[in-house]
Amino acid sequence: MNCTICGLPALDLRRLGAKLREGANLMVGQPDYDVYVAHRQTRHADQPIMTREEFFLERQASRFGEGGRRALRCC
């Protein structure tokens, strides 16, 4: 059900909470782990999948590490 004026979906608190959490994580460079797992399972089922911890450390290193310009922040 979408709002007739702004076209946004009506408020769903649980979904909002999940989105806020996902947004907060992505703000500091951590994409969604479940999405990653789902992607690996469907597209690269034969290859190993990082654990949640490995995934966290890999993303952290890539945000700031070698060649990493992802933490570039403006003024």
């Binding site: 989105k19 996902e22 994409p31 969604d32 990653y36 797992v37 993303r59 890539s62």
Partner: peptide
């Protein structure tokens, strides 16, 4: 699943 991920627009 890492750098290139389709993401919710609000997120």
């Amino acid at each position: 699943g890492l750098d290139y991920v389709p993401t919710d627009r609000y997120v």
